[in-house]
């Protein structure tokens, strides 16, 4: 009647299976490749800053938010909501390192033309454009013509600041939502996106970014802060698919469980769970009968 004297078996089977699972898991082929100008560590970010990320309005951010080398993220989970993860050093360091590399890569691009400084009314095909400083760099509609190329790239090299006026818009023509992140805005100072602006592309600013509008793309500040001041500001990593305002993702989502596009298939179906319960009961009965002898 002393159950504690019974031999304690280890779990060799479990360990073996964990080992096999780990072997399978870590032997999966890597598909990591550099994507465009952004390194792989930068892709998941919607917002990355050097010192502080602050959200003062009831905004929705889709994608990761990070700060490095600083560590201050203010305004989450309220009043802002983030569909992603919040990262500070050391986790955010690789992203900031990739931002530094991307900044250098874009800065090395040779301009095909100098445009603006007010880009309103222009329709631009893919290319590299230099834009000089002005009181506003966008006072109306800028159209980016993707020419049907899903990999179209526009590089805007702002010699100083990037400033938009209230209600201005960057739109994509002859392309889709995925083209939004094909626009790279290299800002040698600070970027200010005014209220009511619908902006597209990745903003890579040397110092600060102030957002008071909707962005489909990324707000990436090397040395300074990212401040989001307007309610309903929505940041979305293009890869995440959710557009301004948190629209449904425009990519196929294959449900791995109930409610998915492939139908109601949970980890184990209802019949499977019933069979499993019966199997466990039968094994339990057998064990009890054997031990009763």
């Amino acid at each position: 009647m002393n159950p504690q004297t019974a031999p304690i078996r280890k779990y060799p089977g479990l360990l073996a299976r964990f080992g096999l699972a780990a072997l399978f898991f870590f032997s999966l082929p890597s598909t990591a490749l550099a994507q465009g100008y952004l390194g792989g560590n930068l892709i998941p970010y919607a917002v990355l800053a050097g010192t502080t990320v602050t959200c003062a309005g009831a905004g929705l951010i889709t994608g990761d938010i990070g700060v490095s080398p600083g560590a201050a993220i203010v305004g989450f989970p309220a009043p802002c909501t983030d569909i992603g993860v919040l990262l500070i050093p050391p986790a955010a360091n690789p992203g900031q390192a990739d931002l530094l590399i991307a900044f250098g890569t874009l800065a090395a691009q040779v301009c095909d033309a100098t445009v603006g400084p007010d880009l309103a009314g222009l329709t631009l095909v893919p290319g590299t454009y230099c834009v000089n400083a002005a009181a506003t760099n966008l006072s109306g509609l800028l159209q980016l013509n993707a020419q049907g190329n899903p990999n179209a790239v526009w590089v805007f090299k702002m010699t100083s600041t990037l400033i938009t006026s209230v209600g201005s818009t960057v739109s994509i023509i002859n392309g889709g939502p995925a083209n939004s992140c094909g626009a790279q805005w290299l800002v040698n100072s600070s970027a200010t996106i005014a209220g009511g602006t619908t902006f597209r592309g990745n903003i890579l600013a040397l110092t600060d970014i102030t957002m008071d509008g909707n962005l489909t793309g990324r707000a990436l500040a090397r040395n300074g802060q990212v401040t989001m001041v307007a309610p309903n500001a929505s940041f979305a990593a293009c890869g995440a698919g959710a557009g301004a305002g948190g629209a449904p993702p425009p990519f196929p989502v294959f449900g791995a469980g109930f409610g998915g596009a492939l139908g109601p298939t949970p980890t184990v179906s209802e019949w499977g769970m019933l069979i499993l319960a019966v199997l466990l009961a039968i094994v339990g009965f057998a064990a009890m009968r054997r031990r009763a002898r």
Binding site: I43, G239, F251, A256, G257, F258, G259, G260, P266
Partner: peptide, 13 residues
């Protein structure tokens, strides 16, 4: 982010 493929892990999964 390379292929755009996504899965949604739902309750029950």
């Amino acid at each position: 982010t390379s292929s755009g493929f996504a899965i949604s892990v739902e309750a029950g999964c």
